[in-house]
C-alpha cells in the first residue's frame, strides 16, 4: 500500500517539496472517499481540514434562499480544495460537493498550522505553494467578475 508520505509527494501541488517536509505534512494527512453528492464541507463551518483531490471532480457552490444553487467553480484531480484554513477566522465561504466519486487527501488544518509555526521552513514551503494558487484564483475571480463575454463586449 502506498504510504501517505508517498501520496503527498506525488501530488503536483507539492512538486519539488523536500521529502522531510512531505513527511511532516503526511503526519497531518488522512485519506478520504466521497460519494457523488456528498459534501467535503459546508459554507460557514470551521475550516478544519483542506483537501488535495486525487481523483474526481468537486463543485464549489453557494446557496441563496429562493434561488437555484450557483456553482462558483469546479476543481479537479490534482487541485486543492479550500484555502480558508490559512486565513482567520478559518471558516469555509462556500460548500464543496463531490460531483463524481472522489478520492482525496485531507490535511488537518490545526496540525499543519502548528507545524508551520514551529518550523518556518515548512511554513515557507507551504506559502510558496499557496500564494501563487491564491493569486491565480483571485485573477480567475476577476475575469469571471468582468463578464468578458457579456453582451456589451463583442468577441
Amino acid at each position: 500500500m502506498e504510504s501517505l508520505e508517498g501520496i503527498v509527494l506525488a501530488q503536483p501541488f507539492f512538486a519539488g517539496l523536500d521529502p522531510a517536509i512531505g513527511a511532516l505534512i503526511a503526519g497531518c494527512a488522512r485519506n478520504h472517499r466521497f460519494d457523488p453528492d456528498a459534501y467535503l464541507f459546508h459554507e460557514g463551518e470551521e475550516a478544519s481540514e483542506f483537501f488535495l483531490l486525487r481523483e474526481g471532480d468537486v463543485a464549489l457552490e453557494i446557496q441563496a434562499a429562493g434561488r437555484p444553487t450557483l456553482v462558483l467553480g469546479t476543481v479537479h484531480a490534482g487541485d486543492i480544495v479550500g484555502a480558508s484554513w490559512l486565513i482567520p477566522p478559518y471558516r469555509w465561504n462556500s460548500d464543496a460537493r463531490a460531483r463524481t466519486p472522489v478520492r482525496a487527501l485531507g490535511i488537518d488544518a490545526a496540525c499543519l498550522r502548528g507545524k508551520c509555526e514551529d518550523d518556518p521552513r515548512t511554513g515557507y514551503a507551504m506559502m510558496k505553494r499557496f500564494a501563487p494558487l491564491l493569486v491565480r484564483r483571485l485573477q480567475a475571480a476577476h475575469l469571471q467578475l468582468l463578464d468578458v463575454y457579456g453582451r456589451s463586449d463583442p468577441a
Binding site: 463543485a59 462558483l72 479537479h76
Partner: peptide, 9 residues
Amino acid sequence: HRSWHGAVG
C-alpha cells in the same frame, strides 16, 4: 447552476 455538469471557471 447545478444542472450544468461540466467545468465552471
